[in-house]
């Protein structure tokens, strides 16, 4: 949260209360305040797609506010009608009449001169896994597959700890270049990569996945992604060629252990 911006917006709103603004002006103020808040109120910028979504909702809300009461509607209509009909507003009207095409022109100018960027794409981060997985010369049923060493966590904590330690070695020998020292997806290779390596500290990855899913992703890597995981190739290697089965299960134990995440439980539904 960018508290300075938020404070500025709030003070601005409070200060404006002292002036006698009309309904129309307030609408503009609220809308603008919401925009500033959504756009600049966060330390990490909110992606434009979400800003647009939010501002659309805010606009709808403001519209509902005005249109849900006759008096408010009148208060908004009156200055607009006055602007269009009264002589005293002629200059303002002229300015607005010029401003609209200028804004369009500016928009086109900036659109044409902006540096070329790859298009925004909606990559599906967690595409549906296949139901079966052929790897290490075996067939795994991904629907019922579990980490064979997960039960050690309670049954034999010591054995579990050595497994995790082994997983740690695997991780720092193979994965940290991309997934980072602290598993935050900021390894030294990341600058050239798109999509960027997964940040395992993110609540939206490991905790919502079952270990069978992670097993599939590690063994098959980017080449194993279905189409919707595209459109561009991810750099995630297919580790089945470099690691054996135990190493994969151990590194899974490690990444869950290190981030403190629990794998998504498979919920049994009686039927």
């Amino acid at each position: 949260m960018n508290w300075i911006i938020i404070l500025v917006v709030l003070t601005g709103l409070v200060v404006l209360r002292r002036f006698k603004l009309g309904m129309l002006a307030w609408l503009g103020v609220w809308w603008f305040a919401a925009l500033v808040f959504v756009r600049f109120g966060f330390d990490v910028a909110v992606p434009m797609s979400v800003v647009k979504l939010y501002m659309g909702i805010v606009s709808l809300g403001l519209m509902a506010y005005v249109l849900s009461d006759r008096n408010r509607l009148k208060q908004v209509q009156e200055p607009l009608v006055a602007l269009l009909t009264e002589r005293s507003h002629a200059v303002l009207l002229g300015v607005i009449a010029l401003a609209i095409p200028s804004a369009v022109a500016a928009n086109i100018y900036f659109g044409m001169t902006a540096p070329a960027k790859p298009p925004v794409f909606g990559r599906t981060v967690h595409p549906a896994p296949p139901t079966e997985l052929n790897v290490f010369d075996k067939e795994f049923d991904l629907v019922s597959l579990d980490n064979p060493y997960r039960h050690l966590e309670e049954a034999e904590p010591e054995e579990f700890a050595t497994r995790v330690a082994h997983g740690r070695e695997v991780y720092y020998e193979n994965c940290f270049y991309c997934h980072g020292d602290l598993l935050a997806g900021d390894g030294m290779f990341i600058h050239g990569l798109n999509p960027i390596p997964t940040n395992f500290q993110d609540q939206g990855t490991l905790p919502i996945l079952q270990e069978s899913f992670v097993f599939w992703r590690i063994t098959k890597g980017a080449p194993g992604l279905p189409e919707e995981g595209g459109p561009w190739a991810s750099a995630m290697p297919a580790w089945e060629k470099f690691l054996n089965e135990d190493e994969v299960w151990d590194v899974i134990l490690f990444i869950y252990d290190f981030t403190g995440a629990r794998p998504r439980a498979r919920h049994e539904v009686d039927h």
Partner: peptide, 27 residues
């Protein structure tokens, strides 16, 4: 209610967020 789980974002935006979900909006 309308906040998307995986966000439509440009490469820079994804890099700034450090992942496919926003550190605050992700919640």
């Amino acid at each position: 209610w309308a906040t998307p789980r995986s966000i439509l974002a440009t490469v820079e935006e994804v890099q700034a967020m450090g992942g496919s979900s926003h550190p605050i909006l992700g919640f």
